[in-house]
C-alpha cells in the first residue's frame, strides 16, 4: 500500500464508521458528488424548528434566463441569503409581501446564474414592518463574511432605515453583473 492508498483507506473507514451508524450514506454520497445540495440537509436546521418550505408549491420566473424555483432554497440567487423567502410569503424573489417595507440598507453578494454562467451582484434586502413570515427558511453563506465586514454579512438584521425593525422576510434582487466571484473582480473567495 502506498501512503496515498493508506490515506484513502483510513478516510473511507472513517466515513463508513460515521455514516453507517447514522444512516447517512445516501446523503453523504450526494454531498460528495454535489456539494451544492447543502441547504437541503436537515443539518441546516439543527437546534431549531425552522420551516423548510418543502410543502410549498413551486413557482418559476417564466424566464429561461432566470432558471429555477424562487420558492426553493437552492434557487441560484439565494447563494448568500439568510431568512424567510419572500416568494413564499406573498412577495417574490425581488419584491416584498403586501404592506411590508423593503429596507433601503443591506448587504451585497454575488451568485452564479446557471443559465449564462455569469456572476450577478445580488442585493439581499429584508422586508420589514410585519411579523416574520415563518415559511421557507433558507440560510446559505457562500462568500459571506463576518460582522466586521458588514457589507458582506447576513447575520445582521437588515431592517435599517425602515419605520419598524420587525422582520418579515428576505428578497434577492439582481442589481447587475459582477466581474468576478467577489463582485469586484478581485481575489476569489473560497469560503
Amino acid at each position: 500500500m502506498t501512503s496515498i492508498d493508506r490515506w484513502v483507506d483510513r478516510l473511507s473507514r472513517r466515513v463508513a464508521e460515521r455514516t453507517s451508524r447514522r444512516g447517512l450514506l445516501g446523503r453523504l454520497g450526494k454531498l460528495l458528488l454535489g456539494a451544492a445540495a447543502l441547504p437541503l440537509l436537515p443539518v441546516a436546521r439543527a437546534g431549531a424548528a425552522f420551516p423548510s418550505g418543502r410543502d410549498v408549491p413551486p413557482t418559476t420566473t417564466g424566464n429561461p434566463g432566470d432558471p429555477g424555483n424562487p420558492r426553493s432554497c437552492d434557487y441560484w440567487r439565494y447563494c448568500g441569503i439568510d431568512g424567510f423567502l419572500c416568494s413564499c410569503c406573498g412577495g417574490s424573489a425581488s419584491s416584498c409581501p403586501p404592506g411590508a417595507v423593503m429596507s433601503p440598507i443591506t448587504w451585497i453578494g454575488t451568485c452564479e446564474n446557471p443559465a449564462d454562467r455569469k456572476h450577478y451582484i445580488i442585493s439581499y434586502n429584508d422586508c420589514c414592518g410585519k411579523q416574520g413570515c415563518n415559511r421557507c427558511f433558507c440560510n446559505r453563506n457562500e462568500r459571506e463574511e463576518p460582522e466586521y465586514r458588514p457589507q458582506k454579512n447576513n447575520e445582521i438584521h437588515w431592517c435599517l432605515g425602515t419605520p419598524s425593525t420587525a422582520y418579515t422576510c428576505s428578497v434577492a434582487v439582481v442589481v447587475g453583473t459582477a466581474l468576478g466571484e467577489d463582485g469586484a473582480g478581485g481575489a476569489q473567495r473560497n469560503w
Binding site: 466515513v15 453523504l28 454531498l31 460528495l32 456539494a35 451544492a36 447543502l38 443539518v43 441546516a44 439543527a46 437546534g47 447563494c79 448568500g80 440560510n139 446559505r140 453563506n141 457562500e142 462568500r143 459571506e144 473560497n190 469560503w191
Partner: peptide, 13 residues
C-alpha cells in the same frame, strides 16, 4: 468538509 462541501460552510453544524 466532505459533508459540507467546503464553500459557505462556516455556519455548518
Amino acid at each position: 468538509t466532505f459533508w459540507s462541501g467546503g464553500l459557505g460552510d462556516h455556519d455548518f453544524p
